[in-house]
Amino acid sequence: MSYRPQVIDHLVRPRNVGELAEPDGSGESGDAACGDIARFSVGVRENVLAEVRYKVYGCAACIAAGSALAELVEGEGLLEAARRSRADLEDALGGPLPEGKEHALTLVVDALHKAFEDYWDRLAGEVLVEGYRGADG
Protein backbone atom coordinates (compact mmCIF):
# COMPACT_ATOMS: atom_id res chain seq x y z
CA MET A 1 0.00 0.00 0.00
CA SER A 2 1.36 3.39 -0.85
CA TYR A 3 -0.10 6.84 -1.20
CA ARG A 4 -0.08 9.14 -4.22
CA PRO A 5 2.16 12.23 -4.03
CA GLN A 6 -1.00 14.39 -3.85
CA VAL A 7 -2.00 12.65 -0.61
CA ILE A 8 1.45 13.09 0.92
CA ASP A 9 1.43 16.74 -0.11
CA HIS A 10 -1.88 17.34 1.68
CA LEU A 11 -0.54 15.43 4.70
CA VAL A 12 2.64 17.45 5.13
CA ARG A 13 1.17 20.80 3.97
CA PRO A 14 -2.44 20.55 5.07
CA ARG A 15 -4.66 23.44 3.96
CA ASN A 16 -7.32 25.21 6.04
CA VAL A 17 -6.33 23.63 9.36
CA GLY A 18 -8.04 24.90 12.48
CA GLU A 19 -11.39 25.88 13.89
CA LEU A 20 -13.33 29.10 13.32
CA ALA A 21 -13.82 31.06 16.54
CA GLU A 22 -17.39 31.97 15.59
CA PRO A 23 -18.53 29.44 13.00
CA ASP A 24 -21.89 29.62 11.26
CA GLY A 25 -21.96 25.85 11.41
CA SER A 26 -19.81 23.03 12.69
CA GLY A 27 -19.91 19.25 12.44
CA GLU A 28 -18.01 16.21 13.59
CA SER A 29 -17.89 12.65 12.38
CA GLY A 30 -16.11 9.49 13.41
CA ASP A 31 -15.73 7.45 16.51
CA ALA A 32 -14.44 9.42 19.46
CA ALA A 33 -13.85 6.27 21.51
CA CYS A 34 -10.97 4.92 19.44
CA GLY A 35 -11.30 5.62 15.73
CA ASP A 36 -10.68 8.48 13.33
CA ILE A 37 -12.34 11.85 13.98
CA ALA A 38 -12.95 14.81 11.67
CA ARG A 39 -14.33 18.22 12.62
CA PHE A 40 -15.31 20.95 10.17
CA SER A 41 -16.36 24.52 10.87
CA VAL A 42 -17.74 26.82 8.18
CA GLY A 43 -18.36 30.53 7.75
CA VAL A 44 -21.11 31.46 5.27
CA ARG A 45 -21.49 34.90 3.62
CA GLU A 46 -24.42 35.44 1.22
CA ASN A 47 -24.78 31.74 0.48
CA VAL A 48 -21.08 31.36 -0.26
CA LEU A 49 -18.82 29.14 1.80
CA ALA A 50 -16.43 31.94 2.71
CA GLU A 51 -14.34 30.06 5.24
CA VAL A 52 -13.75 26.36 5.89
CA ARG A 53 -11.53 25.01 8.63
CA TYR A 54 -10.94 21.40 9.58
CA LYS A 55 -9.21 19.19 12.11
CA VAL A 56 -8.59 15.48 11.86
CA TYR A 57 -7.24 12.79 14.11
CA GLY A 58 -6.51 9.72 12.05
CA CYS A 59 -4.48 8.07 9.38
CA ALA A 60 -2.70 9.94 6.61
CA ALA A 61 -5.62 9.41 4.22
CA CYS A 62 -8.04 11.08 6.65
CA ILE A 63 -5.80 14.11 7.14
CA ALA A 64 -5.19 14.50 3.41
CA ALA A 65 -8.88 14.04 2.57
CA GLY A 66 -9.85 16.72 5.08
CA SER A 67 -7.33 19.12 3.63
CA ALA A 68 -8.34 18.42 0.03
CA LEU A 69 -12.05 18.78 0.82
CA ALA A 70 -11.58 22.07 2.67
CA GLU A 71 -9.55 23.42 -0.22
CA LEU A 72 -12.07 22.17 -2.77
CA VAL A 73 -15.18 23.75 -1.26
CA GLU A 74 -13.88 27.01 0.20
CA GLY A 75 -15.23 29.86 -1.91
CA GLU A 76 -17.94 27.74 -3.52
CA GLY A 77 -21.64 28.48 -3.33
CA LEU A 78 -23.28 26.62 -0.47
CA LEU A 79 -25.39 24.33 -2.64
CA GLU A 80 -22.49 23.68 -5.02
CA ALA A 81 -20.35 22.70 -2.02
CA ALA A 82 -23.11 20.52 -0.58
CA ARG A 83 -23.27 18.61 -3.85
CA ARG A 84 -19.58 17.69 -3.73
CA SER A 85 -19.29 13.92 -3.65
CA ARG A 86 -16.67 11.42 -2.59
CA ALA A 87 -15.81 11.03 -6.28
CA ASP A 88 -14.99 14.76 -6.56
CA LEU A 89 -12.79 14.44 -3.50
CA GLU A 90 -11.05 11.40 -4.94
CA ASP A 91 -10.28 13.41 -8.08
CA ALA A 92 -8.86 16.22 -5.95
CA LEU A 93 -6.54 13.66 -4.34
CA GLY A 94 -5.28 12.47 -7.71
CA GLY A 95 -7.34 9.27 -7.89
CA PRO A 96 -8.58 6.43 -5.70
CA LEU A 97 -7.07 5.97 -2.24
CA PRO A 98 -5.27 2.69 -1.46
CA GLU A 99 -7.53 -0.28 -0.76
CA GLY A 100 -8.92 -0.21 2.76
CA LYS A 101 -8.54 3.58 3.06
CA GLU A 102 -11.78 4.61 1.34
CA HIS A 103 -13.37 5.34 4.72
CA ALA A 104 -11.32 8.56 4.82
CA LEU A 105 -13.53 10.09 2.10
CA THR A 106 -16.72 9.24 3.98
CA LEU A 107 -15.31 10.53 7.27
CA VAL A 108 -14.54 14.04 6.05
CA VAL A 109 -17.53 14.42 3.71
CA ASP A 110 -19.81 13.43 6.61
CA ALA A 111 -18.22 16.01 8.90
CA LEU A 112 -18.65 18.77 6.31
CA HIS A 113 -22.28 17.79 5.71
CA LYS A 114 -22.91 17.89 9.45
CA ALA A 115 -21.51 21.41 9.49
CA PHE A 116 -24.01 22.34 6.75
CA GLU A 117 -26.84 20.71 8.72
CA ASP A 118 -25.84 22.74 11.74
CA TYR A 119 -25.80 25.94 9.64
CA TRP A 120 -29.27 25.32 8.20
CA ASP A 121 -30.66 24.36 11.59
CA ARG A 122 -29.28 27.54 13.15
CA LEU A 123 -30.73 29.59 10.28
CA ALA A 124 -34.15 28.10 10.84
CA GLY A 125 -33.86 28.32 14.60
CA GLU A 126 -34.93 24.72 14.88
CA VAL A 127 -33.86 21.25 13.82
CA LEU A 128 -34.76 21.48 10.16
CA VAL A 129 -32.39 18.98 8.62
CA GLU A 130 -31.41 15.66 10.04
CA GLY A 131 -29.46 12.89 8.47
CA TYR A 132 -28.59 14.82 5.32
CA ARG A 133 -26.20 12.60 3.41
CA GLY A 134 -25.15 14.90 0.58
CA ALA A 135 -24.72 13.88 -3.04
CA ASP A 136 -23.70 10.35 -2.09
CA GLY A 137 -26.69 9.76 0.21
Binding site: E19, R39, K55, V56, Y57, I63
Partner: peptide, 11 residues
Protein backbone atom coordinates in the same frame (compact mmCIF):
# COMPACT_ATOMS: atom_id res chain seq x y z
CA UNK B 1 3.58 19.61 16.79
CA UNK B 2 1.96 19.92 13.35
CA UNK B 3 -0.09 16.76 13.71
CA UNK B 4 -1.26 17.82 17.16
CA UNK B 5 -2.33 21.16 15.76
CA UNK B 6 -4.43 19.19 13.29
CA UNK B 7 -5.94 16.95 15.92
CA UNK B 8 -9.38 17.70 17.36
CA UNK B 9 -8.35 15.54 20.32
CA UNK B 10 -5.38 17.63 21.34
CA UNK B 11 -6.92 21.13 21.28
Amino acid sequence: AQLRELSPLYA
